[in-house]
Design a protein around this nucleic acid. Sequence first.
DNA 1: GAGGCGTCAAATGTATACATTTATCGTTGA
DNA 2: TCAACGATAAATGTATACATTTGACGCCTC
Lengths: 243, 243
Amino acid sequence: MADITLDPLEPPRSGTATRSLSVTDRIRAAVLSGDLEPGARLHEVRLSETLGVSRTPVRSALQSLASEGLLEYAPNRGYSVRRFRTSEIVDAYEIRAMLESLAARFAAERGLSDEERATIERALEEGDQILAKEELGEEERIAYGAVNFVFHDTIHNAARCRMLGDMVRLCQSVPQSSHRNVVSFDHMDVRRRHDDHHRIYDAILLCDAYRAEMLMREHVASVKTSLVRALSGRPSPLPRRGR
Amino acid sequence: MADITLDPLEPPRSGTATRSLSVTDRIRAAVLSGDLEPGARLHEVRLSETLGVSRTPVRSALQSLASEGLLEYAPNRGYSVRRFRTSEIVDAYEIRAMLESLAARFAAERGLSDEERATIERALEEGDQILAKEELGEEERIAYGAVNFVFHDTIHNAARCRMLGDMVRLCQSVPQSSHRNVVSFDHMDVRRRHDDHHRIYDAILLCDAYRAEMLMREHVASVKTSLVRALSGRPSPLPRRGR
DNA sequence: GAGGCGTCAAATGTATACATTTATCGTTGA
DNA sequence: TCAACGATAAATGTATACATTTGACGCCTC
């Protein structure tokens, strides 16, 4: 039985760092996309044969992914895909709310570079344009997902704190928790959150650290709320414009 | 030149998991204690000779420690001890303040087990006894450090959130940032923070999530403030009893 | 003399052989 | 019949040989 659906790794192109890193990226993608189901065992030999490399880079990759929290490891018993409870995914948003609000505060306290300001303003403008339409198609939702990512990522960098960035990344590397998933939420929710972006940027520009923190915290928490609502199947309880 | 001061690993006792894990612990301790200075290169062959194992477990250990953030890694160029700026250590306390305040909130929302209540009450009582004395000797400061650790660790567990626990551990595995270091601070600061512990526990018992969060945030932030004050060489600006 | 190129040594990256642990399955005994 | 023991196969853990990359040194050229 083939519980693994990975194609062999292409021969080492120059400029492709190391096999270990390539294999890591490959397996991570397979886990995050769901190709490798939760609980699935990851046999070193099988993976190495499938990917066309030796066990060494595979072991290295598995270890990396385990310390990212994506895999479980038991000594002498190998690695398996970590099973995330719904509560863990929701909690990850609570953690992100704390971390990203701190990032926003740091960004407000420490200031943005000219380039960061330009990047954010571009992201805000593009978001305005995308959301001007009444309904969003698949393409636009993907485009907005990218814009959303740029906004948050720029603020993480502006926090000038590597540990904070690393931790936010840990929060994001949880199945079903990727930034792209905001696209699957209610259109009005997306608009409200885009408004949040404008306000957060204002606060950071004005060096209003307290307000930046609070706005970002509420912003991420609202994503959590949308997620919980979506999971429980209930519609948005808030009034919608145009009724 | 011997930039490494590690004794050979004793022969594999049964029950000692794997060599990789032993080596990881050994090197981590050397880094955190300062035996391996920031910036020092960690040569695989030299380490394996020093520790009396092959390169394989050494490589595994280095990779683990790099993903913990203790080492730097550059492909094809090996590992070196990460250099932490003072600002990074201070920032780590800001992050901990956010994470631990969330942990306190979760603990208040989700409740403590009987055992956890007992553990915390014991820690509080022991702390009361230790701090009853006017001045603290070396022994008592170590003892209070242990009590302090138990208090915080129990709350992290009570948060019932593995990711949160992992991240707090990441914050703690920063040189000079260990819990034990609170012992080096002003005696009155320690007393005030022990009072904080009592109030935080009250809030958690009463399921007052908001208050638990705020108290814990301020509690950890005050450690940061003490650290900054100690680093800048200024004495405590607050009024002291008995003057 | 300065800059660039090529060689070489030493480090890391990879593959593979060997050691040890684990889990399964069959047998044996009560 | 069931439980416990033991053998066996397959997995992971470790060691080591080989491959590749890197950086330094020295030489040659301009």
